[in-house]
């Protein structure tokens, strides 16, 4: 059991009953890297539950945010409460950012059953932000029916979303390359559902066929052979194809629910990644920070080449001196 302070208990209660204001403030504290949040996050994980995270990824300008706006619309019509975490890149020079996802979603700007939070990537390169895992722990503890995570505009190798979302949707556009591009490893492989957005383009059907051919060859986990990732054509500005996309997302959640072993396998994979992420963060804090778990004196022998950094790392991990 996690023992919480009275203050944290209040926050936990507010979140589990859906208080958006509390959620917004806590996300800021997480983003600031405020110390002392671990106990609360532990309790939030325990309070969280059903897997309901949808990842939306794809290259810049493909229409991810506009599509998310329309997906929210369909989910709301079907009676769901929705939270969105939308990540945009930070400047490598100043750390500043233009967070421009929310403006595509203004149709839901005053809906009390929709929460939208923009987040800057702050130097993280995988398509999300360093604190995305903690933020999703918060959102998962709240009574949202679905949580949508929109990545930064991705390239071929930003596949981090697969470690966070239960269902991944890859949004692309026509003219995005030929069948060899579609066959390349990386982001093409991680998706449960493929979207060809801006499908009023004359090249849309050719691109859809290429994707379908590539998906047909796909490598899938044992127990997941029945799911052939569908390719859905959409026009996010007018909402064309979005009902079908939401149907397919729902269908994917159902197939996963009907294959408990497969779901657990995917969940275990995400958890393993999450634990590594937490360990990495703890180590970074212990090693890099001024309080010096790795003081100069321990580095000296390596500097003098009496010891190697691999041995020092092993000692550090096993807690030796």
């Amino acid at each position: 059991m996690v023992q919480l302070s009275a203050k944290d208990q209040l926050i936990l209660d507010a979140l589990t009953s859906g208080c958006v204001r509390t959620c917004a403030r806590l996300i800021s504290r997480i983003e600031r890297g405020e110390p002392g949040l671990v106990e609360l996050l532990r309790a939030l994980y325990m309070a969280g539950g059903s897997e309901k995270i949808i990842g939306i990824t794809g290259p810049p300008g493909a229409g991810k945010s506009s599509l998310v706006a329309k997906v929210i619309g369909v989910l709301r019509r079907r009676g769901n409460r929705v939270a969105v975490l939308a990540v945009d890149p930070s400047s490598p020079f100043t750390g500043g950012a233009i967070l421009g996802d929310r403006l595509r979603m203004i149709g839901h700007a005053t809906d009390p059953e929709v929460f939208i939070r923009s987040m800057a990537s702050r130097g993280r390169l995988g398509g999300l932000a360093k604190k995305a895992g903690d933020v999703l722990t918060v959102l998962s503890a709240m009574p949202w029916d679905f949580i949508i995570v929109e990545t930064v505009g991705t390239g071929q190798s930003e596949t981090e979303i697969m470690h966070y979302a239960a269902v991944v949707v890859l949004v692309q556009t026509p003219m995005a390359g030929d069948d060899v591009q579609a066959a390349k490893a990386g982001i093409n492989e991680i998706s449960d559902i493929y979207v060809v957005n801006k499908s009023d383009h004359p090249d849309a059907d050719r691109f859809r066929r290429q994707l379908e051919a590539m998906v047909g060859l796909g490598l899938r986990l044992e127990g997941d052979r029945l799911w052939r990732p569908p390719v859905v054509k959409t026009q996010s500005l007018v909402g064309e194809g979005v009902d079908e996309l939401v149907d397919q997302i729902g269908q994917r959640f159902r197939t996963l629910a009907e294959s408990p072993e497969l779901s657990r396998q995917r969940f275990r994979h995400r958890l393993r990644h999450r634990v590594v992420e937490i360990v990495r963060e703890m180590l970074e804090r212990d090693i890099q920070s001024g309080n010096g778990m790795l003081p100069d004196s321990r580095l000296e022998p390596v500097l003098a080449r009496e010891k190697d950094p691999y041995e020092l790392a092993r000692e550090f991990l096993s807690g030796g001196t």
Partner: peptide, 22 residues
């Protein structure tokens, strides 16, 4: 970090954005 909201925003929409985005 700038949350850019663009055009056609009502005071209500901006207030909700300010609360969500803190």
């Amino acid at each position: 970090e700038v949350v850019y909201l663009g055009v056609n925003q009502t005071p209500e929409m901006i207030v909700q954005a300010a609360m969500h985005e803190d």
